[in-house]
Design a protein around this nucleic acid. Structure first.
Lengths: 153, 153
DNA sequence: TCAAATTCATTCGTATGCAAATGATATCAG
DNA sequence: CTGATATCATTTGCATACGAATGAATTTGA
């Protein structure tokens, strides 16, 4: 056995597991799983709307009519994604679109009365979803978690 | 003005913003954004592989040959999703599949030598991705965050 | 003013992600 | 042993998600 071999073994012993890569400890992997769990909880409480669709309705309810592009910025969706979401909400009669009178590039999006009723009905469920998602944490832990998560996002 | 009106106003005043639903404060929305940010960081460091593809390679590197179904369980992908991921890795020559000799239902998946070289080369980059993702937090905050995130996932 | 740069929306291609249905195989229970 | 169950994999359909390319409209800057 060479001196190099001894040194290598020593280093590996000192490192413990540091030379091993454990997927299940990586923030990206756990983040993906936590997100999956939330989506699953969401689906169990609100079966006929996806989280992105809900986000679009909730934001329109909050700020009123806006352009598709601006809405996308506010709910963190790129232009291609938000178009699909709005198309499906439009097909279901929950939002309506119109052309901006001055800036002809813009597509204005707004809730229909049906969309307004839907979001008002769903917001209590959304609170329950948040609660269930955070249920594994104590109130204090949840506050800490949300603070740190917001710093990452 | 009725007594009910007074009571309502009082309650609303005491509630502050509690009657308003703010999407940007909901754990699901922030979780989605944090996940998006991580995927973006991942793509900037490892452009030719997605996080799910990397997860499959890393897990195979960790545990060796396994069935497609078992691999899916280990990396939190349902059967339909893992099939697509493995198909694409197979097309790129990073994994190879074979039939289980005893249980003919199972599809065994393993790294090719090329896949092994790839994951060994990428693991240092993955460590950098984790670091960059957690960069907005102090070391202590990151430890707390990971602990709480794991409880949620 | 007017050409260049920017913005808004759309389209295409690729890659997750999951529910539901299906087929093949294996295991279990009576 | 065999019918009922369960497991493994595949396929289809739908919904994000994003890069890149395109076209229309607006804004900027020399």
């Amino acid at each position: 056995m060479s001196g190099e071999d001894n040194l290598l073994r020593l280093v590996e012993a000192e490192d413990g597991d540091e030379n091993n890569y454990h997927l299940q400890d990586q923030v990206g992997f756990i983040l993906r799983k936590a997100h999956q769990r939330h989506v699953s909880i969401f689906a169990s409480q609100i079966g006929d709307l996806t989280p992105p669709q809900f986000a679009a309705l909730a934001k329109l309810y909050d700020i009123g009519e806006t352009s598709q592009n601006q809405l996308g910025t506010l709910i963190a969706m790129d232009a291609a994604t938000v178009k699909g979401v709005i198309d499906r909400l439009k097909a279901r009669g929950l939002v309506e679109v119109s052309k901006h009178e001055v800036d002809k590039r813009r597509l204005l999006v707004n809730l229909t009365s049906e969309g307004r009723e839907a979001i008002e009905r769903l917001i209590p469920l959304a609170r329950a979803i948040t609660e269930e998602t955070l249920a594994p944490l104590t109130t204090k832990e949840a506050a800490t978690f949300l603070r740190l998560l917001a710093k990452l996002a």
